[in-house]
Design a protein around this nucleic acid. Structure first.
Lengths: 239, 239
DNA sequence: TGTTTGAATATTGTCTACAATCTACCATAA
DNA sequence: TTATGGTAGATTGTAGACAATATTCAAACA
């Protein structure tokens, strides 16, 4: 491994090697299973079974479960084990309202944009979205939309906000993962979805904070709330 | 332990016994040490030393450190250990802006108050504050003020918001724990502090959301921001 | 038939021990 | 003097084992 002195001698930027821990890998694997619908809200997450599945020991698996608990994807009860977090209407309400508060704060602090590299990151994410829509690849569009929203929140340069938003977004994706029935109804084309996000980015580029906030107000919530029909699932909005 | 059937036979409400885990106790102990100033930002938290100090094994101690990491009081780097979270101006800025966003959301969702028991909880906390001020007990006032603010946020009946606010509040208390120098300057008397909170509660009771938001806007932030002077510490505002 | 008790099984919580990695220090070579 | 290599000690990461607790089921009792 090159030391920083070595990197300076080579005139290269540091490129730290950062092998993921078993804890991180296990958490990532479980999160993927949850978001892919392999594990559903209420499903038990039995430590012994997961350790057998992943071929790891229990202490790091327990740490992974705590990570996921912190992200809101898993609930644990002392001495009774863990399960995938259930989703009630109240949960959906909380997720949506909190998401809105985070986005609002991000725009209040981040628009006008102080650092052009942050804006560039939004543009790259939008381009990824456009590419995915062009390929008619919905899954890639979901991923790129996630990146776009993270990049918008990152405009504020507020690490705590970004971390909180990221955890919350996983919970939103869990809502979306449950909507296989509604998923088949297309509320908008992939292209329209991209254009909606492009409009948001244009307002950000214009540094029109009020307009951005207004656009975010209608970006999902109003249409979302109209779709809350006593279901415990979250209707599909890609972004 | 009485089962729920047993409780029904005795006509008593359930009274679950819930022994704290070693993980919880260790996290509580470390948090207390941090908030009491025994551990300062940047101090290393060496697992082997903490296990010796507490007389517990390392895996649950590691789980405790992860809990504290999620609360923002501790930072960990893979394979390099943990330390008490450093506090820069940026950290202070993040804590304050995020706190404001949480409080704002709580008031937007929680005022007018839908559940009178939530309001009663605010009143009890304010009474505890008044009692503490009467006894000239600043430490108790800090605790009661914490309870008051949690109770205000709890008006919204939004569990995610409460949990997020609680973690953030520990970080604010870490800021305050550093202000021993400024602590000796009394920006207001304890009585004035209580009155300030009483005024906030009165506005809440009047269900005047706009007024509450305006009062919160001036509750700490404006005076706080005037005190940011290139210090990496957070000036003292009890509440 | 409904309730209680006891035993077996499943699972969680924590401990001990080993492996891997990092840091500090010293000796040697350029 | 600076850079490199090697070693020892400190610390973190994880595996495996034991203890404690919860759940389930069957038998006994009212």
């Amino acid at each position: 491994m090159a030391t920083s002195a070595g990197a300076a001698a080579l005139d290269l930027p540091p490129r730290p090697i950062d092998p993921p821990s078993v804890v991180q890998l296990a958490a990532d694997a479980i999160r993927s299973m949850i978001l892919a619908g392999e594990l559903r809200p209420g499903d038990r997450l039995v430590e012994e079974r997961l350790t057998a599945l992943f071929g790891i020991s229990r202490p790091p698996l327990r740490e992974a479960l705590r990570l996921l608990q912190h992200e809101g994807l898993v609930v644990r009860a002392a001495r009774r084990g863990a399960m995938v977090a259930p989703l009630s209407e109240q949960d959906v309400h909380e997720i949506v309202t909190l998401r809105h508060a985070y986005e609002r704060l991000a725009i209040e602090l981040g628009v006008p944009v102080l650092d052009p590299s942050r804006l560039e990151r939004c543009r790259e994410a939008l381009q990824s979205m456009a590419d995915a829509a062009h390929r008619d690849d919905r899954a890639a569009l979901v991923e790129a939309s996630f990146s776009f929203h993270l990049a918008v929140v990152a405009l504020a340069g507020h690490r705590r906000l970004e971390e909180a938003y990221r955890s919350l977004y996983f919970q939103m994706r869990l809502c979306m993962a449950l909507n296989t029935s509604i998923r088949t109804e297309r509320y908008e084309t992939l292209q329209d979805n991209v254009e909606r996000h492009r409009r948001l980015l244009e307002l950000i580029e214009r540094a029109d904070q009020e307009a951005v906030l207004a656009e975010l107000q209608s970006h999902g919530d109003t249409t979302f709330l109209a779709q809350v029909q006593g279901q415990t699932t979250c209707p599909g909005k890609v972004g």
